[in-house]
Design a protein around this nucleic acid. Structure first.
Length: 97
DNA sequence: CGTTTGACGCGGC
DNA sequence: AGCCGCGCCAAAC
């Protein structure tokens, strides 16, 4: 993958404010040509110990993506005040522009 | 070099 | 309002 675009992806994620979330697709649209799948791949490839708020990235349907750390992600978000409804979805106004 | 594989998204139904 | 199928594209095989 183009390391330049990857850098953009990581930078955007690092700027998501606490208590807000954004989607894979939204992030992809802010970069120069990345797709939602590339954003997902970039997150998957993150080394442990990075400081990025990876847990603030959710799907376009306002649910958590299906991956191993989904449980931890839910806890992290709730710690920041992000509420989930009974179906595990997040309020739309929680999205970061 | 052809296929398969996903931390996804969207349009149809 | 969900489910399904297809598009997407870098990587792994």
């Amino acid at each position: 993958m183009n390391p330049n675009v990857r850098e953009q992806i990581l930078t955007i994620i690092s700027e998501i404010p606490p208590g807000r979330v954004t989607s894979y697709g939204r992030i992809a649209a802010m970069t120069d040509g990345a797709t939602a799948r590339m954003v997902a791949r970039a997150l998957r490839d993150l080394p442990s110990g990075h400081g990025l708020p990876w847990f603030r990235v959710v799907t376009a349907s306002r649910k958590l993506a299906d991956h191993g750390g989904a449980d931890e992600q839910r806890n992290r978000l709730m710690d920041e005040g992000v509420a989930f409804d009974a179906r595990g979805r997040i309020a739309q106004d929680r999205f970061w522009p």
